[in-house]
Simulated assay, not measured.
Amino acid sequence: MTTVLSVRDLKVEFDVPAGRLPAVNGVSFDLFAGELLALVGESGSGKSALTMGLTGLNRGPRTHISGTADFDGTDLVAAGDKQLQRIRGAGIAVVFQDALAALNPVQRVGKQVAEMIRQHQPVSSKEAALKAVSLLRDVGLANPEQSARAYPHQLSGGMRQRVMIAIALANDPGVLIADEPTTALDVTIQAQVLALLKRMQREHGSAVVLITHDLGVVAEVADRIAVMYAGRIVEIGTRDEVLNHPRHPYTVGLLNSMPRIDGPRPRRLAAIKGNPLTGVDRPPGCAFAPRCDLVQDECLEQVPPLENQVACLRAGVA
């Protein structure tokens, strides 16, 4: 398999009043061409901070990013702002969760798609407008010509999300990052957007990084799954490996907290005790240790490395 993105020891830290917050704490992974990698975990686990760090969208005077992220021979961490501007939208594109906030409210959506095309391709305004309509048709808008003339507020949530996907795919990027793309959409529209992402993945050959906390979504579309907790990947593997044979206690806890349609109906769903880490202070050992039923003394002293696809000294015991 061809590696399109190789991330090593990525750290993203933010200066906050209490000190330096380690939002992403030494993440390493490879993304392969044509695959859909799902990043899952509770809110605050570092999923969005990780992907925004790769694209430079969370850079600022109070942000500290280190490590390496090789994309097509360019280290995204070391790249300057102008380099990242050339890569964003052309090599790596992002679909944000709130399409209404991401789209320009006073510009017609067709013009916004065409603007992304002209930013990276030497085409005329007319050519870009025609391609914009074609892209809106490709993402499933029933009347693309009419939709191209609409403003964002005149479209439904699902239609706006399709517009965002059209913008993201305007220049056939090698990597597409979808940050909670089905948030606030009803179940039927969620399924349509996910099916669209999978179809675009196949037709355009883009590798997709899907950020979500919904394991039902993951089970439908993911090729591989990376489970994040407290800024680190604690388990990574194929969809079958992670969902059917979880090895990390956190992954087991996430899966047990999901309602099932087979087997006896429990009186109440299982829950992971305690709360995820959100502050600047982190325990010296495993970050999940305060919530883990399998914790031992060694877990309180050592930060388990990600080895054999899992970061746990007690892997497979649960």
Rank of each mutant, 00 (worst) to 15 (best):
R118M: 15
L36V: 14
H120R: 14
V303D: 00
T188R: 07
V252W: 01
A102G: 02
L103A: 04
R202Q: 08
T251K: 13
L76T: 01
S28I: 07
E307M: 15
G26P: 09
P22G: 05
R265E: 04
R267K: 14
P290E: 04
A311F: 05
T188W: 10
L103R: 00
R59M: 02
I225A: 09
L255K: 06
A79V: 11
K11G: 07
P259A: 08
K273P: 00
A148R: 04
Y250A: 00
A166F: 08
A18H: 10
P266W: 12
F14K: 03
S48G: 10
A270K: 08
G34P: 03
T55L: 13
F14D: 08
V7Y: 14
L210F: 06
H213Y: 04
L54A: 12
G216W: 00
G110N: 13
V113W: 08
C299F: 07
D81N: 01
R268F: 11
M258A: 01
S43M: 01
H120K: 07
Q121D: 06
D15T: 14
F71H: 15
S48E: 12
P305L: 12
G89E: 02
L243V: 04
A69H: 06
V234P: 08
S206I: 03
I165N: 01
F32S: 13
V139R: 12
V16S: 11
D30T: 04
H248W: 13
G279L: 06
Q161A: 00
G73Y: 12
P17K: 13
L169T: 03
A150Q: 07
D262H: 10
L135H: 04
A114I: 07
L84S: 05
Q190W: 01
C292I: 05
T212F: 13
V175Y: 04
M116R: 03
L54D: 09
T3L: 08
Q112F: 03
E203S: 10
H213R: 08
T212S: 11
